[in-house]
Nucleic acid binder design. Sequence first.
DNA 1: GCCGATACTGAGCGAGCGCTTAGCGAGAGC
DNA 2: GCTCTCGCTAAGCGCTCGCTCAGTATCGGC
Lengths: 207, 207
Amino acid sequence: MSTAEETAGGETSAWGEVTPDAARRLLIAAVEAFAERGYHATTTRDIAGRAGMSPAALYIHYKTKEELLHRISRIGHEKALEILRTAARREGTPAERLSDAVSSFVRWHAGGRTTARVVQYELDSLGPDARDEILALRRQCDAEVRAIIEDGVAAGDFDVLDVKGTTLAVLSLCIDVARWFSVDGPWTPDEVGALYADLVLRMVGAQ
Amino acid sequence: MSTAEETAGGETSAWGEVTPDAARRLLIAAVEAFAERGYHATTTRDIAGRAGMSPAALYIHYKTKEELLHRISRIGHEKALEILRTAARREGTPAERLSDAVSSFVRWHAGGRTTARVVQYELDSLGPDARDEILALRRQCDAEVRAIIEDGVAAGDFDVLDVKGTTLAVLSLCIDVARWFSVDGPWTPDEVGALYADLVLRMVGAQ
DNA sequence: GCCGATACTGAGCGAGCGCTTAGCGAGAGC
DNA sequence: GCTCTCGCTAAGCGCTCGCTCAGTATCGGC
């Protein structure tokens, strides 16, 4: 893990698409602050302070505090969708693809817990338009997982009573990792990913 | 469902232990507001307004806004623990007891989603002392579920790789229901409870 | 060496926050 | 019928919030 990629949470997240440098530092500071205290309990003074700048500097790069959350949410959801899409569309049996999807999705939520917490739990703090945009990305995440499960059922590999409900439960299980995972806990992100992949294969009756 | 037990969320929760009547009305108003907007985004004026009182009335019955959250959290966690304890200590096979625990715990999170959201997601807004008290109740919830799973493993009914991790995953799955469940969605709390009980029995290898 | 553009700071505005206080009105006790 | 108690309100205090704006340091172009 390179120093440039580390945040205070100790996680890898390049945020390479955010430029210039000052805008990226502010965004990373916002992710950390939102994850620790929540959007509404975080002040713009705190964000600017963490980035080593004055409160007014924030408004050079972002129109409002909400724009910061919106940018974080969109980039985070796009990354989450990319992870699921990559696993869903690779070669392999439905069980292999589902296992891959769950373990990599869980690794992202555990390893990038700071970002994931903001992405998954601060959605309600966005205004209606930004919220709708993010919800569309969520539906795409759901569709990717459901497609794998439907493939497994069609192939006779999975035994599922309720495809829609099981899809939701699988995603729900993965997402909640961001709530409870701690680097001080007994597991590494890889270990949780492997455990959860096993549990999910059991849930769909693949074992 | 009696009118007296309904909140704006349409859920049953008596809050009968909270007296006098004005204190209970304020507490129910706070639950609704915290669930909708989060603790930090909720104002004391909003809580008092929902209860049909002036802002100052809140301070007759509660010392601070945080005391309201603390009371809600403690009562909610005690109720959650009672549900798990009842299921864990009834007669029956480990599979029956686990199924009972999950379905009733999930029904509580779905049906009482307004309360459950506050109880499960606003913990970080409490001060250190109140937080520690609530965390102790959470560990008791974890212990009840782990005991059932350990019983099942000892009896040879369950096939579990990691008891601690599986316990966490089961609770995590149930708790996240409070995040996504909506009364406008396609399922009733009973249906989600039944689906989740089935999924959890698969997770522990009981089917 | 001067100019304009750019990135930033110091100071502070209006608003809304959690919470306090003085006082009001209704009912119980006698 | 007077008084005391108690639940509540109207008004507002001190503070911090998101955000603004005039001014400054720095740097490339010429």
